[in-house]
Each structure stands twice: as C-alpha cells, then as structure tokens.
C-alpha cells in the first residue's frame, strides 16, 4: 500500500494520477469505520490533512468552505455566520469525531444521513471539484447521485463547497433516539433567504439523497410577509405537510418509514415557526 501525503491540491492531483484508484482520506471518520469492519481495503491512499488550502474558508457575499473544514470549525468558528451548518455540525458524533471529520468528507461520502447535506441543499450549495483538467462546479443536487454515490470522476477531489450567503434565519433540527452522538433518523434545514424571497427546505435521512421540499417552498414563498419575515400558522402547516409528502423514507433498524415521515412534518413546522414567527 502506498500512502501519499501531499501538501497542495496540485500535488494531491498528481498523487491521484500516479495512484489510479487510490482512496482519498480526510478526517477518516467514514473510511476508517469501513476499513475496520472489513468492508473496504484500499490499495493506496491519498491523505489530505496536510493540504492547508483545503482547510481554509471565506465568508463574504459568497461563502466558500474548503473541503477540509472540520465540523469543529463549523461549530465553533462559524456559528454566527452559518447557524444551521453549525447546528448540524454540533450533532455529528463526539468532539473527537468533530475535530477530525470534514465537510468535504460529508459531501464526498454522500450518506443519506450526512448531517450537513440537508443544510447545504437548502443553501443551494455547489461543489467544486479539482481534477487533472482543472476545476468544475456542480450543484449539490447534481453531485450527489444516490446513496453514497456521487458524480466525482477518477482523478478528482473535492476542493470546496460554496453558496451565496443568504440574509435571514437558518435552522437545523435533527431527530435521533439519543440526545447526542447519534445518527439521524430524520432531519431538516430551513434557510430563509430574504433577498431572493425564498425559503429553502432541506430534508435528510428520509430519502436516498438529501431532498429539497420544492413543492413546500413554492407554496410558502408567496405567503411570507417578506418585510416582517413572518408567515401565518396555516402557511407553515401547509408547508410542513407538503414537506412530509416530499419525503421518501424507508424502514430500517433505526426507524420506520411512517415515523420518519411524521418527523419531517413536525420538524419542518417547528423550524418554520422558529424562523418565521407566526
């Protein structure tokens, strides 16, 4: 096994070129579990932790989060600017896991239960991929193609995740059968975008990919008092019901599909109530 430890994105791309099929390693919080369970045994690894540029972030009109930004950074350093992402990061594993795991890893693994994914979906985030032929940018919706499946090509790595910074409340709520350190049974993100007069509603753990409740968003937008940033209870309940309809949950050992759908309705109603005070 070869383990490449590049210090720049360019070197990382060279290493990927030299080691076809190499596994990317960031925080290792997904990969090491797979390896420990014997589900994956990569021949080669390109380890990204030393690539300093991937750990950078910018918060301006546009937000750019390097793929190596950890959950701890989201939780502690960006809580004011990105409250929903910070709240989502706070629910990931233990502090040790949050020190290691990265936003790029969450996006790259593309688990249906990835905690930042519904927030990024609600933020209309895009994923920048660096590859041998240069960078390309895909909307999150086009990048994540299925459960743990993405549009990344051989030789590429995730450089960053970016989105326009909205003005308005941002919320994240997550249901799990324990009060901390738990995999999501259902979660939702609500992003109130006063500039574009839209409310983004992202859903997690209730479908093969992070979902957008677009019918709920479409129904809600015209009913919001955009100057006061308020909506009435009927509008919120309608949006919550439409969100529950948008869910595509399954039954597994963590919860039934019925309960997951029920949670979506409750969570979206509560998130909208907090964000748009009826």
């Amino acid at each position: 096994m070869t383990i490449a430890r590049p210090r720049t994105v360019a070197d990382a791309l060279d290493a990927l070129g030299a080691l076809p099929g190499a596994q990317l390693l960031a925080g290792g919080t997904d990969l090491m579990v797979e390896i420990n369970f014997g589900r994956r045994s990569p021949d080669d690894i390109v380890a990204l932790r030393r690539v300093a540029e991937l750990g950078a972030f910018e918060v301006g009109e546009e937000v750019v989060l390097g793929a190596g930004v950890t959950y701890s950074v989201l939780e502690h350093d960006l809580a004011d600017e990105l409250p929903a992402l910070a709240a989502a990061a706070r629910t990931v594993g233990s502090p040790q896991i949050r020190n290691a795991g990265t936003v790029g890893g969450n996006v790259g693994t593309a688990s249906p239960a990835g905690d930042t994914l519904p927030v990024l979906a609600a933020l209309d985030a895009a994923v920048t991929l660096a590859g041998p032929e240069g960078d390309r940018t895909l909307p999150l919706d086009a990048f994540i193609t299925g459960p743990k499946r993405t549009a990344i090509r051989p030789g590429e790595l995730i450089r960053d995740v970016r989105f326009r910074r909205p003005r308005g409340p941002q919320l994240f709520l997550k249901v799990g059968p324990r009060n901390a350190m738990v995999i999501s049974v259902a979660c939702c993100a609500v992003v109130v975008d006063a500039d574009r007069r839209r409310v983004g509603i992202g859903l997690g753990s209730v479908g093969p990919r992070p979902l957008r409740a677009t019918a709920a968003e479409d129904a809600l937008a015209p009913l919001v008092d955009w100057d006061a940033l308020r909506a009435d209870r009927d509008a919120i309940q309608r949006a919550a019901a439409l969100s529950a309809e948008a869910a595509e949950p399954i039954t597994d050992h963590r919860a039934t599909a019925d309960y997951r759908r029920h949670c979506v309705g409750v969570l979206v109603e509560r998130a909208l109530t907090r964000g748009l005070e009826p």
């Binding site: 994240f172 738990v182 509560r270």
Partner: peptide, 16 residues
C-alpha cells in the same frame, strides 16, 4: 436547549 428532549438535535421548544 441541549438539556431538553432531543438534546443536540434542537428539536423542541420549551412550550412543547
């Protein structure tokens, strides 16, 4: 809010 049901998931307001 961390000490309410749901804990870190921030799922519930005290009135509920």
């Amino acid at each position: 809010p961390l000490e309410r049901p749901g804990g870190a998931g921030l799922t519930v307001d005290s009135a509920d």
